[in-house]
Design a protein around this nucleic acid. Structure first.
Length: 299
DNA sequence: GGGTACCTGAAA
DNA sequence: TTTCAGGTACCC
């Protein structure tokens, strides 16, 4: 379930459930996707849980006994095992989910449970049918910060967006999926954002006019904000006791609505494969922008 | 850039 | 049986 709003939702919902709990052990049920942490895990305490880009970061604070010096160094200057900060960075990719459960499950994990972090009074399970998800150990959250702008942050302004777009010949939809310019937008929200901005997915990203960039900026902010408020978009309805679900699917304007009437003009929603992914858009609504800005192989 | 690969399950 | 799926790394 992972675009920016879904990952943000996971981090927000997980944080209060796990903060302050003591770590007991980590279990990897899948082939090793995660190297040993290189530091002691037991006796650490879960600290912050946050989203960075599309990843969830879980802070594992040093064990109290090892916390004596804030430097994490012993008297001889050697690193004290367990004293260094440690962060578990999880990328959910296509089908990954992080679920917190209060009961410790039996030794035989449920299907698709690839890893579990056992805590006092509960367990964080990583469930991932397609096994695309990834784990990584970090020493600080800064290591996860991508060289790209987070569209929910204040630094994301129309001027910032204009600078990012400048010179790119890529079609807008493809450009929005890049993670090295703006982080967090995936296949659902790319189509949704462009519909709200009344822009064709096939326009060259670097050729937008000032007012079009303003519309794209506003739509990006509005769609992501609304999706976060709705706790993201959920299609499959797993019935876990503590599974996370969102409700933004009720607000989707074009995604998976091929042939249905456009909510704005009533024309049919179109679908076309673009860079091996489905793009949904309304020809009629995007046509105005095309007429003014010039088509980029508009079908 | 585009194409392919990584995986599995659901739906057509 | 084939196609499609919320992502990204890697190949020419």
């Amino acid at each position: 379930m992972p675009e920016l709003p879904e990952v943000e939702t996971v981090a927000r919902q997980l944080a209060p459930l796990v903060a302050g709990r003591r770590v007991t052990r980590l279990a990897i049920h899948d082939r090793a996707k995660l190297a040993p942490p290189g530091a002691r895990l037991a006796e650490r305490t879960v600290g912050r849980v946050m989203r960075v880009g599309k990843r969830v970061l879980i802070e594992l604070q040093p064990a109290p006994a090892a916390r004596g010096g804030s430097t994490g160094l012993g008297a001889a200057g050697a690193a004290v095992p367990g004293a260094a900060p440690l962060w578990l960075a999880v990328h959910l990719r296509m089908t990954g989910r992080l679920v917190f459960g209060r009961e410790i499950p039996a030794d035989t994990p449920r299907p698709h449970v690839r890893a579990q972090l056992f805590l006092d009074g509960g367990v964080i399970s990583f469930i991932d049918p397609r096994r695309f998800g990834t784990f990584e150990w970090l020493r600080s959250p800064e290591e996860a910060v991508p060289d790209a702008v987070d569209p929910t942050e204040n630094a994301f302004t129309p001027e910032c967006l204009a600078a990012l777009l400048r010179g790119s010949p890529q079609p807008l939809k493809t450009w929005l999926l890049r993670q090295d310019r703006l982080v967090g937008i995936g296949n659902i929200y790319a189509s949704e954002i462009l519909w709200h901005a009344r822009l064709s997915p096939f326009r060259a990203a670097g050729r937008l006019k000032r007012d079009e960039i303003a519309r794209l900026h506003a739509a990006t902010r509005a769609v992501l904000t609304a999706a976060i408020e709705a706790c993201g978009t959920t299609f499959s309805d797993f019935q876990d006791a503590h599974g996370l679900t969102g409700s933004y699917q009720r607000f989707l304007a074009v995604y998976e609505r091929e042939g249905e009437p456009c909510l704005r003009c009533g024309g049919p929603v179109a679908r076309r494969t673009q860079a091996q992914r489905s793009t949904y858009w309304c020809r009629g609504c995007a046509a105005g922008a095309v007429a003014r800005g010039g088509a980029h192989s508009e079908p």
